[in-house]
Design a protein around this nucleic acid. Structure first.
Length: 572
RNA sequence: GGACCAUUAGCUCAGCUGGAUAGAGCGCUGCCCUCCGAAGGCAGAGGCCAGAGGUUCGAAUCCUCUAUGGUCCGCCA
């Protein structure tokens, strides 16, 4: 039940009545009529812009339309009052009973806030997709949390979601990995080795080298790459993916599918994707203009096979084949997205790090071209995370030497705090993550503040249980109680907005607001004992007051569930 | 030279795809809390929404230009 959507239906019905009665011209477009909570609570519970939107097409003054609409809405049972205000707003005040109904609905209907706006359409959310060359670092962590919460959010709003990880196991970087593992392998055989530039020196490969020795003995010692490169590449990539899967599991992220770039090679799928583009006249051989400004030192004009991405919104055409005839990294990516389209997804979402921002237009161009504009691709960029501890930059890592891993973060503050904190900023805003503040138990830590609200409610409920007082029908009287109910009523609307915009951070901010209004009510109980939930001498009153916190806890749990955070029963 | 993202209170940031007097936390000021459910509470000050144009009933929000900061910019992924 979305109160705002319901009221909008009421308004549209009233407008139709007015048209039938000749008070309004027929055939008006009502698509822009909205019902929103007013910023100023003095303006009532809801406001509609209907009169202002319709004034021009109807050829009438906004206030006249509003004045005619007002009595029709005021006559509804659940509307206590309707007033024309400002330039033509219609402010609506709802009957008190509506808010008690909201509470009751939240408690009875486990799906309060769920939406069917996705209508069962299939969406593919690709996130993390880190190279399989080492453990996930803190930047991946943000992408992982963001992508996972977005996937949850879309699931909550009626989409059929596939969570997917693209393994970049086809490029030169996995050869580098293989050579690095080979060095560790030699080390395991007691040889002294030196890690040249362009190899991965991280300790995490020591175990892989030893495992390789376990498996093949000395078969590769003193042998050339032609003997071992391919085998070690597969072995090392598998080991890294095991590591990455474990990292994701520690964060509570579970993928539906891992898609291998390598699986695209030698199967004709890259060729098929490019043939499709070629069939649309979008592939040609040519030479790109040199980039403006200062040229790279070794720049020289070369003839390449190019994708005419400029036909689909890109700034320049992009090479798909190197001058030696091999694929660029872009080619398998085109094939991969072609495969997603082929698998029948209705919408695609890619979550990238901000350093891949330059890649957005060409990828969108490719999907647009391959799907004839039928499959929308949204690319969400996650900005950098800066780590702090007590206000000092934090750069040490136990595991990997020079970068902070996902494990470092999760070990330090736990998966729940990691996830919530990563969502306290918009994805495209840089994020400061302070290890100390993230676990601080104070009001300026939103994670704690939201968890505290839930724990408080659970504490009250345990106390009520001990007193053998059961929850009864909701009773609301104080303005602070209505404020909480109003906040609860916004939940379904907020979920839809967050899902439509692919912005899970809105959930986190909402939960903070909801927690805040609940804490505010609780604090009033300090001064006014009649507002306390548990009133031992009045079990009947207590029963009526228990519903509101139950409803708050229900929505907090639902919201935290979307974020992938477990609500706490009590604080320690 | 170009692309993308950002620019909102002293600081860190929200802001409902265009609505009314722009919000929160921190910090600041004042009051309360040492009997109550206080890992505190209440209230207040603080703004040319970077700047300039434009679009319309109405702009922090959409468009153009400018400034500042970040990310990136042909065979690395």
């Amino acid at each position: 039940m979305n109160l705002f959507a319901r009221m909008r239906d009421d308004i549209l019905a009233a407008l139709a009545d007015m048209q039938a009665a000749g008070e309004l011209p027929g055939g008006l477009d009502t698509a822009n009529v909205t019902v929103e909570p007013p910023r100023d609570p003095a303006h009532g519970d809801m406001a509609t812009n209907a009169a202002m939107v319709l004034a021009k097409p109807a050829g009438m003054k906004p206030r006249d339309i509003a004045a005619a609409l007002s009595p029709r809405l005021a006559a509804l049972d659940h509307v206590a009052g309707a007033e024309v205000a400002g330039p033509g707003f219609l402010n609506l005040r709802l009957a008190d009973s509506v808010w008690a109904d909201v509470i009751a609905t939240v408690i009875e209907d486990r799906d309060f806030g769920r939406s069917d706006m996705g209508a069962g359409q299939r969406v593919n959310v690709e996130y993390v997709s880190a190279n399989p060359t080492g453990p996930l670092h803190v930047g991946h962590t943000r992408g992982a949390v963001f992508g996972d919460a977005l996937a949850n959010l879309l699931d909550y709003t009626g989409w059929d979601v596939t969570r997917e990880y693209y393994i970049n196991d086809g490029g030169a970087q996995v050869d580098v990995l293989a050579r690095s593992v080979y060095l560790r392998y030699l080390e395991a055989h007691g040889q002294e080795v030196a890690f040249a530039d362009g190899t991965y020196p991280g300790d995490y490969l020591v175990a892989v080298g030893e495992a390789l020795k376990e498996k093949v003995g000395d078969a590769y010692v003193d042998k050339g790459e032609d003997v071992w490169l391919e085998q070690i590449r597969d072995f090392a990539t598998d080991a890294m993916m095991d590591l990455i899967r474990a990292d994701l599991a520690a964060l509570g992220v579970e993928m539906d599918k891992f898609y291998s770039e390598k699986s695209l090679y030698g199967t004709g799928r890259i060729e098929a994707a490019l043939d499709t583009l070629d069939g649309k006249g979008l592939i040609y051989v040519g030479t790109l203009e040199p980039p403006k400004g200062k040229l790279p030192d070794d720049w020289e004009a070369r003839e390449q096979t190019l994708f005419r991405s400029t036909d689909h919104g890109d700034d320049v055409d992009r090479p798909v084949k190197k001058s030696d005839g091999s694929w660029t990294y872009f080619a398998p990516d085109i094939a991969y997205h072609y495969d997603k389209i082929d698998r029948g997804f209705d919408a695609l979402i890619d979550v990238f790090g901000a350093d891949h921002g330059g890649y957005v237009k060409r990828m969108k161009a490719a999907v647009s071209a391959l799907s004839d504009g039928q499959v929308p691709l949204d690319i969400k960029l996650c900005q950098l995370v800066k780590l702090w501890k007590n206000g000092e930059p934090f750069t040490m890592s136990k595991r990997a030497g020079n970068f902070i891993t996902l494990r470092d973060v999760v070990d330090e503050v736990g998966p729940d705090v990691t996830r919530f904190t990563m969502l306290t900023r918009k994805n495209d805003a840089p994020l400061d993550f302070d290890f100390a503040k993230a676990v601080e138990q104070s009001k300026d830590n939103p994670v704690f503040y939201v968890q505290y609200a839930h724990a408080r409610i659970r504490s009250v409920e345990r106390k009520a249980d001990a007193l053998e007082i059961a929850m009864g029908p909701p009773q609301l009287s104080d303005p602070a109680e209505f404020d909480v109910a109003r906040k609860l009523a916004e939940w379904p609307r907020l979920v839809e907005i967050a899902a439509k915009n692919h912005e899970p951070h809105r959930i986190a901010f909402y939960l903070y607001d909801l927690a805040s209004s609940f804490h505010s009510l609780w604090n009033k109980g300090n001064d006014d004992p009649s507002l306390r939930i548990i009133q031992e001498d009045h079990p009947h009153v207590t029963a009526g007051k228990l519903a509101l916190p139950r409803a708050v806890a229900t929505v907090l749990t639902a919201g935290l569930g979307i974020l992938g955070v477990t609500p706490l029963e009590e604080l320690r």
